[in-house]
Structures are given as C-alpha cells and as structure tokens.
Nucleic acid binder design. Sequence first.
DNA 1: GCGACAG
DNA 2: ATCTTGTCGC
Length: 221
Amino acid sequence: MKVTRIHQWDVSICEARTVQKKLAAEIVADRPLALDAVRLVAGVDVSVKSDRSQAAVVVATYPDFRVVETVTALMPTPFPYVPGLLSFREGPVLEEAFGRLKAEPDVFLFDGMGTAHPRRIGIASHMGLWLQRPTIGVGKTRLCGRNAPLAEEKGAHQPLIDRGETIGAVVRTRTGKHPLFISPGHLADIPTSVALVLACAPKFRQPEPIRLAHKAAGAFA
DNA sequence: GCGACAG
DNA sequence: ATCTTGTCGC
C-alpha cells in the first residue's frame, strides 16, 4: 500500500498539537462510502508491550470476512500516551505495516477515533491522510462529545455531539452491551460509517476486521 | 482553577 | 493499552 509521508513523527507534545491543527483542515468527513462497491475491508490495531509497539493490519473480504492478507510491524514505542495524541504513538509502527501491505483495501477500520476528537483528527483521520483511502474510527470508549440515551437493542445509534457539532455516532452493535463510538476518519461520512461497522459486526461487539487485527497484533513476539 | 481524558 | 484466575451469564 502506497503511503504518503506528510510530516515528521519526531515532534514534541506541543508540536504534535500544532501539526494536528494544520492537518485537520484537510480531512474530508462528509463523503458517503460506496457501500455496494466494498470488496475488501482492513482492520488495524496496535498492542504495546514492554516499550515495544506491535502493529497488525488484516485485510478481509466483505461481507464474508475471509482473510486475504496479514502484515505486522514491530518497533520501540516512540511517544507517550497522551489523550488526543494517540496517532503520534501508534502512527510510526502503522506506517511501517502499511508499507508492507500488498492489497489495496476499499476501507480501513481503526481502533480509536476519527473526527470524534477535540481537534477533529483522531488516529483514523490522521492515518487516512497518509493512506489517501477511506478510513473509519471505531472507539470502545468516549474521548469527547455527548449523546442522548441509547436504546438497548442492537443497531440503535445516537449522534455524538461536541461543542454543537455532530462528530460521530454512539452505536450499539450488540443488544445490552456497551456501545461503540464511531466516526469517519477520512474520505467517509457518519451514516455510511455506521452502516459499514454494523455490517462488519454480525456476531460480536467489535467489527470482524478489528478482531482479526487485534489477535494478530498480540500474537507475535 | 476544575474536570475529562481514544489506546 | 497492560497487569491477571476464576467465574458469572447466555
């Protein structure tokens, strides 16, 4: 997968926020995904163990989720965990993994936020700029924004709103289970992102591609 | 100043 | 995210 190097990763915490403010203007988060044309979906995940970051990208067919390619990458964890700056911690090792990817997925699913971020540029949005491909953020917990009470039934969803702006959606993929925080990363929009994630999670709370990537990221030394 | 805070 | 066994529930 061709990746475009849009800036240096080696920056201070202060500089990282400046980089985000500049890049946020380039994010496209109002473009519907052509769901009928989706054939390959990639799941992206990073696990951090003992100062080492391990990334995995798993490409699966859609809508049957057959694994067609798995790539991994390993490197020293380069940046501390700072809420709002996750991409500077996980981005470097992901760039390495993306460079090894031969397939060209129609869309990438990330473990984390897209536009549902204080500066509207979570890891899914940020990496979408490097990939120049549609990306979606799938968070397990809230970073920012608020939402109205959510019905318990699978498929229920409510807008996620921050400072008067709708930045994503809180979505129930399993009845009675904690919801997911979905937001477009880049080259996608909220309605189609929610629809794709729901279609990718027919059996478990987490979308299938991310489950596969999570297993692959934590399974190699 | 106080509270919130992806993975 | 990670440290960690058994255990409650569908």
